[in-house]
């Protein structure tokens, strides 16, 4: 096993983590501010990917597609918030789970209706094709490095937005006491729509970026959604810092587990078994990690104030 391969896998883990952060940040914001558990967040990821692929195919420009993914996901998010989700804030978690589960069914089948059952394909833009040499031997895909950079920039931007701007101040106030900030004259329902649309746009961005690495198809959001849930539960629901830490932890543990476990088991088991057992355990690894963390810290690593 060469060092270059190890670095490549670490970077893959980081890229997965950064993408999970884009999903988890929106989920955790929406939960923190509105107290809503949103299963349909994965559908917004899918909408972003489809918007990007469709616009890129029509115009030939990935960048227009990327812009379209942000707009489409944010618009879909705002629409969903105003028409449906707004009625769920006062409900219990069971109603929220069911209503957003229903939204998944509607959005998935609706997308299949519009685009058909065949996957769409999205090319990496020519500017970002190619590879970057790694220290030592080997090289790494430039596009994946750009995803990591975009994720880091978004994380920094979110931090500034929440810590330094008036909107961020209102979001933080909404997290700690929503009745009070409504009483102080802040239009709380507009704030909720803005937060939901912001979360949706981040999910859409993640969908568009990942769409160029895999095929764009209905249901692509669901595995990512569940990983994002694992991330925010590990990090502590409502905490952006927890989402960033949890996302990178999950991304790296998952990738390195799949890479290293079969190799480690090969030292003690025959080759025919070590791959299967290693693969099976590796696919469970992050859930084991989550169970362990919750067993010792039931509110996650960076629990936000209740």
């Amino acid at each position: 096993m060469s060092i270059a391969l190890l670095i490549e896998q670490l970077l893959n883990g980081l890229q997965l983590g950064v993408m999970l952060f884009l999903m988890a940040a929106g989920l955790t914001l929406i939960f923190g501010v509105m107290g809503l558990i949103n299963l349909a967040h994965g559908s917004l990821f899918m909408i972003g990917a489809f918007a990007c692929a469709a616009v890129a195919a029509a115009t030939g420009s990935f960048w227009l597609g990327l812009a379209a993914s942000l707009v489409a996901a944010a618009a879909a998010g705002a629409l969903i918030e105003v028409v449906i989700v707004r009625r769920l804030y006062a409900r219990d978690h069971l109603d929220q789970v069911l209503a957003t589960f229903a939204l998944i069914l509607i959005l998935s089948e609706g997308t299949r209706w519009l685009f058909g059952s065949f996957p769409l394909y999205l090319d990496i833009p020519s500017l970002l094709q190619g590879a970057v040499p790694l220290p030592g031997v080997g090289q790494y895909q430039l596009y994946r490095l750009v995803i990591i950079a975009v994720g880091m920039i978004v994380a920094a931007g979110l931090y500034l937005l929440i810590a330094r701007t008036r909107l961020g101040m209102r979001i933080r106030a909404g997290e700690s006491d929503r009745e009070m900030i409504a009483a102080l004259g802040v239009d709380i329902s507009t704030l909720y729509t803005v937060v939901f649309a912001l979360g949706a746009a981040l999910a859409g961005l993640a969908g568009a970026l990942v769409g160029a690495l895999q095929s764009v198809q209905v249901g692509m959001g669901e595995p990512v959604l569940i990983l994002a849930f694992v991330v925010i539960v590990i990090g502590g629901i409502g905490s952006i810092k927890g989402a960033l830490f949890g996302a990178i932890l999950v991304g790296i543990v998952d990738t390195m587990g799949r890479f290293l476990l079969p190799k480690l088991l090969a030292l003690v088991l025959p080759a025919t078994q070590s791959g299967a057992i290693g693969g099976a355990i590796a696919s469970m690894l992050i859930y084991i990690l989550m169970a362990l963390i919750l067993a010792f810290r039931p509110r996650g690593l960076f629990a936000a104030q209740a």
Partner: peptide, 14 residues
């Protein structure tokens, strides 16, 4: 050991 939304998600994760 958990309640509310954590319970929903940890059962999902298992």
């Amino acid at each position: 050991r958990t309640t509310g939304v954590y319970f929903i998600m940890i059962t999902l994760a298992f």
